[in-house]
Design a binder for these strands. Structure first.
Lengths: 236, 236
DNA sequence: GGCCACACGTCAATGGCGTTGACATAAGCC
DNA sequence: GGCTTATGTCAACGCCATTGACGTGTGGCC
């Protein structure tokens, strides 16, 4: 009895499907990402992916043990794409902000995979490099080690937590997402000033602000607070 | 043809199921939370919930239009539990901190449900009350409306995002969680100072700090930054 | 060039899921 | 006590992921 999944490296026989497609791990992952991007997160199912590939749905199980393994591969591909091209400017605030924004948008661009990946510590090269860089930014800016570590922790956790939060919102089935937005206008817009004076007084501002992510402002607040903690006389 | 779902307020005929249970919105939500707490988030399905209630699964559709509506009710119940017994002290910083800590710990106590609930806007009573209270804290502290709204947004998103993040960690199967922590010590503890000087220099501090949640310090940073934004001359 | 093992695409089937429409019956109003 | 109808029940639909068996064409080997 042979194992169902053959590692991509030792794969030798490539046999076209009835519809002529030649499958590979790479092709499947790329197709899954395209499917998500084009038709939303809920469009990703084994059956639909099979159809998009021009193959029997169960052919996927020759490449991934289950859908979880497939999603992990998709997440890994996403991380690889996002890490490309970052360089330090030397200004700690600019660099930290860029890191935060990159992590956030990287996850938000692939919400389905992000939801799965955001809560895990991989210990792989891309991750360790990011840790090293952020710690470097803080220590070079003059923060003593114990403070640098605490700031690193808060910064990274916040970036990942917001990324997961925003990704989860983007990954909701479109019906649920629309309903969430509708709630803001229908429910919050009709609360009485008697019972909810603060909501009633600020409603237009509230509805406008809540449609976006809270991360950019939260990031600025954190940067400002960190600036205030920086030892006097430190360079940069 | 009457509407399938009757609002809980105007419900008058309570008819026991074959197994003798008397259903209500309240009972269903509580049972759902118990089911999730005992058997994990994936144990929550219409069929299993029906079985746990001692009713036909489809009886739920007399109380909730679909599973999404049920989920929102569960989420709102968690928000309500987080606020139980809270009272304002009048000091905005104390009150905001208490709100944040309450949300965080409540969600972490019900990690499986939190993972499902933290990303949704329910528009239900517990949620609107929380929104009203937080806005009240900020406006009473003297923040102008537009700033109060932006701070509210950043604060709430931060609390929920960290709550979901911490809950997800707590909800991992124990084997996977131990493996994640082990990876932290094994991988990060053995990185060479040549390739990862900043990690190597701070590793003991790092390993100690990363074992807890980043939220408390992130919350303090946000409060400090907000304090700096408060208009001069405001009371409190 | 021909043979053979078996990898891999395919098919059928299983058991789960949410949801709907039709039905029966008891609750509560008059 | 009769009527209306809310509410619990049932059967069925069309999805879903996953598995085991099957046969065909590929690539290695001589």
């Amino acid at each position: 009895m042979s194992e169902r999944v053959v590692p991509e490296g030792s794969r030798q026989r490539r046999r076209p499907t009835k519809q002529g497609a030649v499958l590979s791990e790479r092709l499947i992952v790329d197709t899954a990402l395209r499917l998500i991007a084009q038709h939303g997160a809920e469009a990703l199912s084994v059956r639909r992916l099979g159809a998009a590939l021009g193959a029997d749905p169960t052919a996927l199980y020759r490449y991934f043990r289950n859908t979880d393994a497939l999603l992990l591969a998709v997440a890994d591909e996403m991380i690889g794409r996002a890490q490309e091209g970052w360089t330090a400017t030397g200004d700690w605030r600019t660099d930290l902000r860029a890191m935060g924004v990159r992590i956030n948008s990287c996850y938000r661009n692939n919400p389905q995979a992000a939801v799965l990946a955001a809560h895990r510590t991989t210990g792989r090269t891309h991750e360790t490099r990011a840790v090293e860089r952020i710690l470097g930014i803080l220590r070079t800016a003059g923060f003593p080690d114990d403070l640098a570590v605490r700031i690193y922790h808060a910064f990274v956790d916040q970036a990942l937590a917001f990324a997961a939060q925003d990704a989860a919102a983007a990954a909701l089935p479109s019906a649920a997402r629309e309903k969430d937005e509708e709630v803001w206008h229908e429910v919050y817009g009709r609360l009485s000033p008697d019972t909810h004076p603060n909501i009633a007084a600020t409603f237009p501002l509230l509805a406008a602000d809540m449609s976006g992510s809270g991360y950019p402002f939260a990031l600025e607040l954190m940067l400002a607070a960190v600036e205030a903690l920086r030892p006097a006389g430190a360079g940069g």
